[in-house]
Design a protein around this nucleic acid. Structure first.
Lengths: 146, 146
DNA sequence: ACTTGACTTCAAGTTAACTTGAACTTGTAG
DNA sequence: CTACAAGTTCAAGTTAACTTGAAGTCAAGT
């Protein structure tokens, strides 16, 4: 397949595809002309990338996961399965955080107690950690630090 | 309160506080020296910002929300409540998306069918929209476009 | 053969949300 | 009075994940 075809079928732009390739996340061969030629399995790889991104993983993390796939053969369902197994926990953690936020929304902002020194959801005791930028309240775990 | 105090109590860095002020999201007065002086209500405002960010709102959106607060008096609980009311739906939408992802994880990647042309969760029929960058599969709604 | 669209590389631009650094001024503890 | 911590402004840097543009090559339809 040409890059344009892959782009159409995957919903990912050609520039993004080149970018992924540059980062070693997908691969292609070259036609004599220099144009990229993709094999079908690349589609699953791209799907995996999109999926993982949507889950909140960074490209770096995703690249790490992809690196665990066998290099010498086309990954089968068991390979893909192994990669994604641990993710359920991750999704659930984020869902839990959102539930907590929802609670804070009604219980904390809603009731008007939203103030850092009084709110139950807020940092209990003004002991804010100092690890990286961003707010650190109501936060389970900040998104994977860069 | 000085900017350092506010930073300590809110868990937001001084540079971020100056940045928020520059964007008109929080306010301060100046001491004769030129140093910023904050009033207590700013803490709630900052808490609100952090909270909203954690929910996935951009600063621009948050600024929009904050602009709806009364300018002539200190916002009361009802004011804050009005702001955050609509958010429950938003949180729930994101939770739903994550649930969908979780499902896709076991049903789609897990089963090995993860390929754009066959997966039920994938774009049905290769009809990818072309609205902005990023993948468009398994996606409910992309994060608020910039 | 010609035109047009798809492709190539490479460098530079974009956006968000800040951070960092430089150069300088204020406030405060001893 | 003297450090030195904390504050000030302003410009420039950072990171992620791409996009855009320039300048040129290749492929496909007529």
């Amino acid at each position: 397949m040409t890059i344009g075809e892959v782009a159409r079928r995957s919903g990912v732009s050609t520039s993004a595809l080149r970018f992924y390739e540059e980062r070693g996340m997908i691969f292609s061969e070259r036609a004599g002309s220099g144009h990229r030629r993709y094999k079908r399995p690349v589609l699953r790889r791209i799907a995996f990338i999109s999926f993982a991104q949507r889950m909140g993983l960074s490209l770096e993390e995703i690249a790490g996961e992809l690196a665990m796939l066998p290099a010498n053969r086309v990954p089968n369902r068991r390979d893909w399965y192994r990669l994604s197994r641990g993710w359920t926990a991750r999704i659930e953690a984020r869902i839990a955080e959102l539930e907590r936020l929802k609670l804070g929304l009604t219980e904390c902002i809603g009731c008007g107690c939203l103030s850092l020194d009084r709110c139950k959801l807020a940092n209990p005791g003004d002991v804010a950690g100092r690890r990286g930028p961003g707010a650190r309240y109501w936060i389970g775990d900040p998104r994977p630090a860069s």
